[in-house]
Design a protein around this nucleic acid. Sequence first.
RNA 1: GCCCCUAUCGUCUAGAGGUCUAGGACGCGGCCCUUUCAAGGCCGAAACCGGGGUUCGAGUCCCCGUAGGGGCACCA
Length: 501
Amino acid sequence: MYEEQLVSDSRPVRVRFAPSPTGDLHIGGVRTAQFNWMFARRHGGKFILRIEDTDQKRTQEHSLSSIMDGLRWAGLDWDEGPDIGGDYGPYIQSQRLAHYQYWANWLVEHGKAYRAYETPEELELISAARKASGFPPGYDRRARQLTPEDWARLDAEGKPYVIRLKVPLDGETVFEDMVRGTIRVRNDTLQDAVLLKADGFPTYHLAHVVDDHLMEISHVIRAEEWLPSTPLHILLYQAFGWEPPKFCHVPVILHPSGGKISKRKHPEASISYFIKGGYLPEAVTNFLCNVGWNYGKTDEKGEEIQVFTKEEAAEVFDITRVTQTGTKFDVVKLKWLNGEWIRRLSDEALARRMQPFFEAAGLNAPYETLLKVAPLVKERIKVLTDAVEMAGFLFRDDVPVPEPSTLIPKGLTAEQTCAALQLAHDTLAALPDFEVATQEAALRSTAEQLNIKAGQFFSPIRLAVTGQSVSPPLFEVMAIIGREKVLARLARAIAVLQTTA
RNA sequence: GCCCCUAUCGUCUAGAGGUCUAGGACGCGGCCCUUUCAAGGCCGAAACCGGGGUUCGAGUCCCCGUAGGGGCACCA
């Protein structure tokens, strides 16, 4: 199916991302938001942010700002939303209760819905009894029998009620999903879903249908977990006599071990994991494009282009080509992509982006120094936090004293190593300047003098100066650290070897 | 239990009935480069879930199995 057929000219493209404020933004939510965003940008439509806070128990105080921060971090800007308003506001459902109550009652008045007075406890009993006698669990629609007189009597007793949809007992509901094609469900498998809760708040089913209609949403792009309840939503549109939007259900993101990735069980389900973990928003959105969709452009070698921006993706985004299979979230591949993006950063940009991570590690890393560090770590790190691990020693005075055993390279004795370090020390001390090229020329000829391989020579120097066996290129590192500290650290290592020998 | 969706290398995917000896990427292995580690270059191993149809021809269409996922709340 091609997308062009599904975007009608008569109806402007208006899509929304509608999270519930129950904590951090979920990584799957980011992708859903991104698909909506790309679809809107592709078709010159509007991308709307709406907050679905109709569950008073689960709503969390700081969640709204956390969600908006997450979206901003990912660069998914919205055209209408709680903070910026718009012509269809308010964009927070708890501020739209009058709408839901009006339309719920409208359905009752028109015989499409009814009041039900069962308590949650009674419902549990009903469900259990049905199960026991071989029926599917759920509600048995007994309140359909109630007359308006019954309602008056129960109201007089002060009994709270909910409003339930009167689902047709026979027939089937059919709709077209933009990625899955025709979906067909028998109505007798559907429940008389609650639309308005006893506390006067709507359920998701009612609230989103009313809002999507009132906000003139043209395409509902949402996670696959909504697929089974979509027939119910179609029935609701029919009961109202409204034209439903087009639906598109995108596959869920799975944990590599199988099953839905959940914030409760997996830290990487939350966008903050990636923000704090030193991932670039460019890489995360790039990666998310390839989970359930693919860019499809190839380079001159015939290889698929893997690195692209979400803007580039939006230019060719076709929602009907979204995959239909649940996809596992491969953090390893994300890390690789993140490395690709880091390598594309200018030194200035990389320095700026690394800075907060050094600070978070308690290191005072001036921008000017980071600017020199950037080219050294650029092709060695996958996430920004790697830079702290790899180059943190540049900003630390308490670099660990190396173990004598690690100091001695293969093929050399302790005495030889000690002598080599002493010679390195003296050579460096005598240099006219401390430039990389000067150091390199001098130390390479020193290695020749000593008749040992360059690698054998540089290894103990590296250990002594950086405290690590792995580091960015040695001469660059020493130039940044400065001659004084380098000589001191060499002297310290020499002393360690001497006491051992 | 009932309903819905899905099924190509370990993972993400390309594949719109003949161009498939099934392509790419990550990861993995090897080689080259090299002061460590990377990055980069080259090479390699690695998949159409099973069974029936339809068709001259099926990874591609249909059916049945099987497997995976999702859903059956006064949560979203």
